[in-house]
Design a protein around this nucleic acid. Structure first.
Lengths: 147, 147
DNA sequence: GACGAGGTTTACGTTAACGTAAAGTGCTTG
DNA sequence: CAAGCACTTTACGTTAACGTAAACCTCGTC
């Protein structure tokens, strides 16, 4: 871990309204501490769809948000396929038919249940870690006393 | 999702004190809804070390707990290597020297920070999901009114 | 006009975490 | 004793998520 990512904070508040700012692939990569390769891969997997100016990819605010959500999902252990599933349905929503929308609601409910389970897992994991921590400190103290 | 795992609940409270119960690989596999292959793989990766009776693996309470922790770690997106790191240091604790113990405390602190970040990620993710959910319901309602 | 910094495509390589198949062992049950 | 079931080892296959390398464009600049 070298430098923490700047994420979405404009470091030195730039003048232009964030909404029309654009980013190069390199900029985005530095922002989120990933490689350009990763970003291109996400595009190939249908998670991003930047516009082009000639050959070059142009990323807008929407793309940046998507990337942020994608990486967050990854940190939570979701596969790119799962992430795409939600992201794409979200986009298809406005003109989605009732069946699709209900299916979306189902998926969302699954995700929520998943998150709840993860919350519980984290809670339990913390207890374990605190326990191990305590034991380690105890042993350390013992060592200190008998040395 | 076929049948939810029984985890550590003794389904029909058996008489023998849980501490000396033993399990076959198949039993454990069914308990946690994984394949025997997975369990053997975890052993090969140094996460489990069941005793043998002839050729057959005999799992005790300790092994079952380890497997449970391992799978919980996996659900949280940890790699087997990361999980092993903590589990093995935990075992090496009693006779660990001060340097090792301090190193362990460092690792634990990292893990804790990691869990905190995940908590935050989950919180944010829930907000997103709730938002998408709300929009979907709105669209559905619109459809209902105009049909 | 050479060149360095960024970008591009194409394509093969790599790692983790298992899946899957083959071939053998050992018990117990009809 | 044959059949079946649960276990074993060995070994090759597979998938996701990128890494890495080669070969090319394009722009500002020295």
């Amino acid at each position: 871990m070298s430098r923490s990512p700047s994420q979405d904070l404009d470091e030195h508040a730039d003048a232009l309204p964030r909404q029309q700012r654009t980013y190069s692939i390199g900029e985005l990569a530095r922002m989120f501490e990933v490689t350009p390769r990763t970003i291109r891969f996400y595009e190939q997997e249908g998670l991003l769809a930047p516009s082009r100016q000639g050959q070059k990819r142009i990323y807008r605010e929407k793309d940046r948000v998507r990337l942020k959500l994608t990486l967050r999902g990854k940190r939570l252990g979701f596969s790119l396929a799962e992430i795409r599933e939600v992201v794409m349905m979200y986009d298809a929503m406005p003109d989605g038919n009732a069946r699709q929308l209900k299916r979306l609601l189902e998926i969302l409910e699954e995700k929520r249940a998943n998150l709840d389970r993860q919350m519980e897992d984290i809670r339990l994991m913390r207890l374990e870690i605190d326990d191990v921590d305590q034991r380690a400190r105890d042993v350390l103290r013992q060592l200190g006393e008998t040395s």
